[in-house]
Amino acid sequence: MHTLTATAASSLSLPAENYIYTIAPSAPGRFAAISSDDSLRIFDAANLDRVSVISRKTHGAGVTSLRSYAAGESQLLATGGREGKVKLWDARAGTAVAEMETPRNAPVLSVACNPETNTIAAGTELVSSQAVVAFWDIRSPQALRLQYVESHNDDITEVSKLFPMEYQIPNPWPKIIRTNLTRTDGLVNVYDTTITDEDEALVQVINHGSVHHAGFLSERTIYALSHDELFSVHPATDPDDPAQDPEPVHFDDVREPLGCEYVVQLCVGAQGPYLAAGNKIEKRLDLIPLVSRPAWQFDQENLWRLPGAHGDEVVRSVYLDEQSQSVFTCGEDGFVRAWRPADAGDDDAQAQAGSAKTSRPKDKKQKDRFKPY
Score class of each variant (00 low, 15 high):
136 W>S: 00
106 A>G: 04
162 L>V: 03
117 T>P: 02
141 P>C: 11
149 V>E: 13
127 V>F: 01
155 D>Q: 14
122 A>T: 05
99 E>H: 05
137 D>R: 09
117 T>A: 06
120 I>D: 01
105 N>G: 10
131 A>Q: 08
110 S>I: 08
159 V>D: 14
120 I>G: 01
151 S>K: 04
136 W>R: 00
141 P>Y: 09
155 D>N: 14
147 Q>G: 01
125 E>W: 08
147 Q>E: 07
154 D>V: 06
129 S>V: 12
139 R>G: 06
159 V>C: 13
127 V>A: 04
111 V>Q: 02
149 V>H: 08
149 V>C: 04
113 C>P: 05
137 D>A: 11
166 E>T: 04
100 M>N: 00
160 S>C: 14
157 T>C: 14
164 P>D: 13
109 L>R: 15
109 L>G: 02
120 I>F: 01
103 P>K: 04
142 Q>G: 06
134 A>Y: 09
127 V>E: 12
128 S>W: 15
138 I>T: 13
132 V>D: 06
123 G>N: 10
123 G>M: 07
106 A>N: 00
141 P>E: 05
109 L>C: 11
161 K>M: 08
122 A>W: 02
150 E>P: 00
160 S>E: 06
105 N>I: 07
148 Y>T: 05
105 N>Q: 15
134 A>M: 02
130 Q>Y: 13
165 M>G: 06
137 D>F: 13
136 W>K: 01
109 L>M: 10
101 E>N: 09
128 S>F: 14
152 H>V: 10
115 P>F: 02
150 E>N: 15
114 N>W: 06
158 E>I: 09
167 Y>G: 08
164 P>Y: 00
104 R>H: 04
148 Y>I: 12
152 H>P: 08
163 F>A: 03
129 S>A: 11
137 D>T: 05
136 W>M: 00
131 A>S: 15
117 T>I: 02
167 Y>N: 09
153 N>S: 11
101 E>H: 04
163 F>Y: 03
108 V>N: 00
151 S>R: 14
115 P>L: 08
113 C>S: 04
112 A>D: 02
149 V>N: 06
140 S>E: 15
121 A>I: 10
147 Q>C: 06
131 A>M: 04
113 C>K: 03
157 T>L: 09
117 T>K: 08
157 T>A: 08
99 E>L: 07
167 Y>W: 10
157 T>N: 14
154 D>Q: 07
154 D>E: 07
101 E>Y: 08
136 W>A: 07
155 D>E: 05
131 A>C: 13
153 N>V: 07
105 N>W: 12
151 S>V: 12
121 A>M: 05
131 A>K: 02
112 A>C: 12
168 Q>Y: 07
132 V>Y: 14
110 S>H: 05
150 E>K: 14
150 E>W: 12
134 A>I: 14
146 L>A: 04
